[in-house]
Amino acid sequence: MLRVDVTKQLGEFSLEAAFESQGRVTGLFGASGAGKTSLINMIAGLLRPDRGVIALDGETLDDTSKGIHVPPHRRRIGYVFQDARLFPHLDVRQNLDYGRRMNRLAVDPAQHARVTDLLDIGHLLDRRPGKLSGGERQRVALGRALLSKPRLLLLDEPLGSLDESRKEEILPYLVRLRDEGIPMVYVSHDAAELRQLATQIVMLKRGRVTALGGVKVLT
């Protein structure tokens, strides 16, 4: 379970959001500039809230009143960015292996095979990120996050930088991923996308939560 109750002032923009999520896929919905990315950056630990609490499965990740801030590398929260952010100096295989190495996890060939199969990236392993298409890059980024064995996966408009046909290419992989059972927070401004993926919606407007509930709130 993810519990968020935070405020953050970013220049002129103020973010004040509170929600609890039990759902397997929490859809964070809102127009651009609504504060979605700032919110998941706080969940990831990349941004510190001015005030408030973030807790995951009973563990406090942020609590400003107690001075708690768990740094991103100790949160075990995976993050798939809109722009993939693959490491340009590493090939696909090394990118995928990165989280395992940093967390000093044992080599897990079965998991590796399952993820590369799930995302159809087995044939890309020896390539450099510069030689991948946008869709391939995003699939590798997904695989990289998954292989670090996170307890929560954040996805920030993972289809945002792709054109329509590419979106159709990735969406089935995301559905498969959801059915794997790993909890996700999925950020999007596209209601159709969230209807397909999310089990619960948090609607955000100008830094405030305006609706919470099932996908029905996306009307």
């Binding site: 990349l46 991103p72 590398h73 952010r85 490491f87 340009p88 990165y98 940093m102």
Partner: peptide, 27 residues
């Protein structure tokens, strides 16, 4: 170097010195 790559590295479990050793310095 794009600092967002260093952020990505930390979300994958890299401590600050590991971010430096595996992303910043090689780049």
């Amino acid at each position: 170097i794009d600092r967002r790559l260093e952020q990505a590295s930390s979300t994958l479990g890299a401590a600050p010195w590991q971010v430096f050793a595996t992303v910043t310095l090689p780049l």
